[in-house]
Amino acid sequence: MSRDQILANLRTSLNANRPWLLNEASRAPHEPPPFVLPPENDLAAQFAAELTKLEGKAYRVPNADEALAVIDRLIEETQASSIISWDLDQIGLPGLAELLTARGITLADTTARGEERKARLQALEPIPLCISGVELAIAESGSLLLRHGPGKPRIASLLAPCHIAIVFAHQLVRGLGEALSLLAQRYGDEVFGPTSNLTFITGPSRTADIEMTLSLGIHGPPQIHVIIVEG
């Protein structure tokens, strides 16, 4: 069996080189630093600055109403009549359901499993807008961490050309190391219990594959709007 053969080879090989490798492994601590850049005081400002550098849009708003105003404007701009969204209670923005109803926006059925997978995804493809919440946001890289799962579909940050993400100030952390520690603290071994997928998103989809020219939106959303609710 290949498994046994591979493992046997590995053991033979490690008989020769394990001491050297262990010595190399002991030359530095393995625990990641909580953050890697000189710390800044205002995490929301740092996040917004980083995302802006990546050509994403960041909005710092004092309360839910101001957040709704931004969403309203984006609905208008994208002329959406339907959106791909997380369950609204998973996003947790008060008044969002009322806004969508008032604008006549329907929440698209995101169930894309089983027999209907292809047909459903094909039907979702033309929708111009998607909305999600986040698990955490990382200030020093302008990144979002999405922990998917029931009520939190992956396609709500992927399929449409415009992605809105709602971040609450308490979800901001300084660095990636801190984000991973927090994740372990919150969920322990069950990080992957309810979902098979965690995704870090850092700015809009991009490529430089044609003559190193930066282009946005080759596959994922060319537009990402992150609304930080600070109140």
Binding site: T110, T111, A112, R113, G149, P153, R154, I155, P194, S196
Partner: peptide, 12 residues
């Protein structure tokens, strides 16, 4: 990514 989509997930 850890395994296939879980029951209750809408996509994956």
């Amino acid at each position: 990514i850890s395994g296939p989509a879980r029951p209750g997930e809408a996509d994956g």
